[in-house]
Nucleic acid binder design. Sequence first.
DNA 1: GAGTGGTCTAGACCACGGG
DNA 2: CCGTGGTCTAGACCACTCG
Lengths: 238, 238
Amino acid sequence: MSGRQGPRGRPQGWQAIRDDVLARIRAREWPPGAPIPHEADLAEAYGAARATVNRALRALAEAGWLDRRRKAGTRVALNPVRRATFDIPVIRLEVEGRGMTHAHRLLARCERPATAAEAERLALPAGATVLALETLHLADDRPWAWECRIVWPKAAPGVREADLTAISVNEWLVRNAPFSHGSIAFSAVAAGHEAAGRLGCAPGAALFAIDRTTWAGPDPITEVRLLFAPGHVLSSTI
Amino acid sequence: MSGRQGPRGRPQGWQAIRDDVLARIRAREWPPGAPIPHEADLAEAYGAARATVNRALRALAEAGWLDRRRKAGTRVALNPVRRATFDIPVIRLEVEGRGMTHAHRLLARCERPATAAEAERLALPAGATVLALETLHLADDRPWAWECRIVWPKAAPGVREADLTAISVNEWLVRNAPFSHGSIAFSAVAAGHEAAGRLGCAPGAALFAIDRTTWAGPDPITEVRLLFAPGHVLSSTI
DNA sequence: GAGTGGTCTAGACCACGGG
DNA sequence: CCGTGGTCTAGACCACTCG
């Protein structure tokens, strides 16, 4: 996403228009809530085609700076909602990306009927059998994250036969069971006795938690809770 | 981002192409790492202009499904990195969006020289004076989040004169000091005695923390730590 | 060097939704 | 109703980068 650049690294084309419009918003030339000129007018002003202006304004709208509506026109967003985006990599790559060595241990693996609560959350048929897995991820031989997961084998064909000691479930699913959508939630929880034992920390320690559920169309693939060892930080730029 | 829809809600145009390509990726017709046909070929196959195919493929590349490089062509991404995006709204709107009433209390406000650590993190000139603020956000009269912040008035002109009891610093800055970039980090921390007192929880309770620093070009605007009352969950869809 | 994606243009049609 | 943004087309030039 570098974009065309001029002699001194200054963007050209639609990116130049985007930057100029953004500069005017920042300079309060077009204050929050105010309408900005129509695409056609801007196109003439910039000496560009309307499609080029459209490209620039669309980028600003996607970034939250503009509100665009047919007929109503384009306005500077009242509450410049900023979005933070996080990549969700395979845990192994996340660990390796921090310069550490990753390993994992499959602590438990069993097939059992889904509990009533699980069946409801995942819209599973009554009495469905799920694969329950517990994995400990290590970074440089120290506990990194404790992963508790259930998988619906119907939506992840082959998972029963996979050697999940060689490749972590996490990675197997990423490669073999692409999902269409899902939900993710971040929170802070106190370590229970079991988590404390797995992660080698004191009971009650503050742990960063990620809960994630993924679907392939109407079928649930997996539901997982990740508890990270104390001190874990998830960061990004905005 | 609704898109043109056909008779039964099926996307048309570039979105139809995007969905079809995505379906083929999911169906392993084009497995991870494999090249997909050139834009020109796809345009002919779909009976569309190349620009339309380009729009579809660009959307898939932005979403992480495809890797595109000039000359090398377009390939299915090897590690389908998924991104989670979170909106960062004004706290008041976040609270109200959950159906509660928001209020805030300015607990402390003082101007003081930046500490050495702050000056280094924020690249402030030696001896710079910052505005230090402490705010408690309430939802339905119960503690919601405790906000500790420093602001560099030079980058937020007018903040000294603002009545921060009427409008929270958070909101004032969003409206009056747009930032160009910044960093954000999520973590879990144990409540100290002060935080426990502010948030009305037990010392040592697991709290969800957000640390954020924002800049206007080369100038730092503000650095803030938000500690949320126990049980806070940040969720999103992917 | 040459192939591929990135972008621009000029013109056109159309869906949406404010008034 | 009808203005505005959303999208499509056909053709063109160009930047990047692989071989």
